[in-house]
Amino acid sequence: MSVTLNALLKSPWVFHLSTGSCNNCDIEVLDCLTPRFDIERFGMLLAGSIKHADVLLVTGSCNRQSAERLKRLYDQVPKPCLVVAIGECSQSRGMFIHSYNCPKPLDAIIPVDVYIPGCPPKPEAIIAGVVNLIQKVKGAA
């Protein structure tokens, strides 16, 4: 595995994107930054700009408005980048599955690397999911 990819796994800066969630998943993402969970231990930082991000944390059910912006943002992340789908909404569209406004699930719009189920997932589950993601990339390389 290349040095830079190895470094990426040790310092993944996350960009947090809500595509129309009920805001509960977003609060759980923010929980991961609090003293109790402190993801800076793993070198993770919350990036303010999409151009600084390595990992895209997507929550919410991708409605017609945000799907377009999601695609545009995905194009703007400097590659290599990883995508994490957080919460039921971003995976199967959850309770919005029959909504006129949510035509497609997230992984039909952009490629997703890891899914973290739950409504909302606990911070522990989010951290475990990211650890799984790191393991997966390590195994693949």
Partner: peptide, 13 residues
């Protein structure tokens, strides 16, 4: 250091 090394491996847009 890790942060810097990682950034070296990323795209410049």
């Amino acid at each position: 250091v890790i942060d810097l090394v990682k950034l070296l491996g990323k795209e410049t847009l």
